[in-house]
């Protein structure tokens, strides 16, 4: 049970990414920070966990959902960039947003509840 959250977080993020638009996703990441703030046993903000979770979710999308060869590769080529750069850009924006939203609310809640 101790490590359940490590599985739950990427799973919840995956589900959120499946259905959420831009602002809904920002709310979801903020809720993740709030949730983590109230989770027993979480003493410090899990930067690595969230980063790896986003990476894992992105990988799932990239390999199982996105039309990489039939669409994204061609799009990247016509945009004059390597597909790797396109993927890295998308991943980076999502990781930074996830971390910023989650950590802000995590620390705020911890401060307010004096935990």
């Amino acid at each position: 049970m101790k490590y359940l959250k490590y599985i739950l977080i990427p799973l919840l993020l995956f589900i959120a990414h499946l259905f959420a638009g831009t602002w809904t996703m920002i709310i979801a990441w903020s809720l993740l920070g709030i949730g983590l703030a109230f989770t027993p046993g979480v003493k410090r903000f899990p930067v690595l966990l969230i980063t790896l979770s986003e990476l894992a979710v992105f990988a799932c999308f990239w390999f199982f959902i996105a039309d990489v060869n039939g669409s994204l590769d061609i799009l990247a080529r016509h945009a004059g960039m390597e597909i790797f750069r396109l993927a890295a850009g998308i991943l980076l924006v999502n990781i930074i947003t996830a971390l910023l939203c989650a950590v802000s609310f995590f620390l705020l809640l911890r401060k307010l509840t004096k935990r």
Binding site: H17, F19, A20, G21, F61, A66, G70, I90, V93, N94
Partner: peptide, 26 residues
């Protein structure tokens, strides 16, 4: 990252897994 520069969709919008570029299919 949510500004529409010159009318183009925002960086967040384009990077969103569900509605962004990643979702484009042949």
């Amino acid at each position: 990252t949510n500004i529409h520069f010159n009318g183009i969709n925002s960086i967040q919008g384009l990077s969103n897994f569900r509605n962004g570029i990643l979702n484009a299919s042949s």
